[in-house]
Nucleic acid binder design. Structure first.
Lengths: 99, 99
DNA sequence: TCGATATTTCGACAACCATCGAATTGATGT
DNA sequence: ACATCAATTCGATGGTTGTCGAAATATCGA
């Protein structure tokens, strides 16, 4: 059975997530990763977003630090997966705090 | 019957809301306003948050510009009300974009 | 009108952040 | 070992933003 793990967010994480979502470019990146059913390679993002490698790397780190995505090295490449539990926890928290 | 008005968010509003939520102090302020069943006077916030008047005024403007609250002058005072439709629209949008 | 109080605006400052070029690290194939 | 390619780190730069003191604006009561 699918374990419906309830993720608990610290105050810091709450802020990190909000900040991660607050940059339009980062939002679009996360949107793309979330739309993918499987992993998203880093290089595929570079084609989409017309962005400098350094900038992309920076944004990916922010998203990962916030806990919104997970990265996995595959040889020379890096693949990204969304972490829906964390987003769900964020939505739940907003609803509970600000409903 | 309660009109379930569906609020549509522009890209700019989306960013404004995310930014508004990304500052911890502002988040706490909004939390307090949302918890209130009725209006929240500006002065009552000053007691709670140990904040300079100028800073508070700045944050309130940000929250209002984002559309998350509504302000009303009452003589010398200002009262604030949450705008749950806007928050709801934001949650809906996040869910639809990033689910 | 005058003084007190509530809130906003202005101006400044420091910290933060998005951006990118250049240099670096790390893996792959030859 | 070497060249190549993917991705990260470093360093710098310009723009944004949270903060607050001081001044301005607005309202009220005396």
């Amino acid at each position: 059975m699918a374990t419906a793990t309830q993720v608990e967010l610290t105050e810091d994480q709450l802020t990190l997530i909000a900040k991660a979502l607050a940059d339009p470019r980062r939002y679009e990146i996360l949107k793309k990763i979330s739309a993918q059913t499987c992993c998203t390679p880093c290089s595929s993002m570079r084609d989409c977003f017309d962005i400098a490698p350094a900038t992309l790397s920076h944004h990916m780190k922010e998203l990962e630090t916030a806990g919104l995505i997970h990265s996995e090295k595959e040889g020379k490449f890096v693949n990204y997966k969304p972490r829906p539990e964390v987003l769900r926890a964020y939505l739940t928290r907003l609803k509970s705090d600000l409903a």
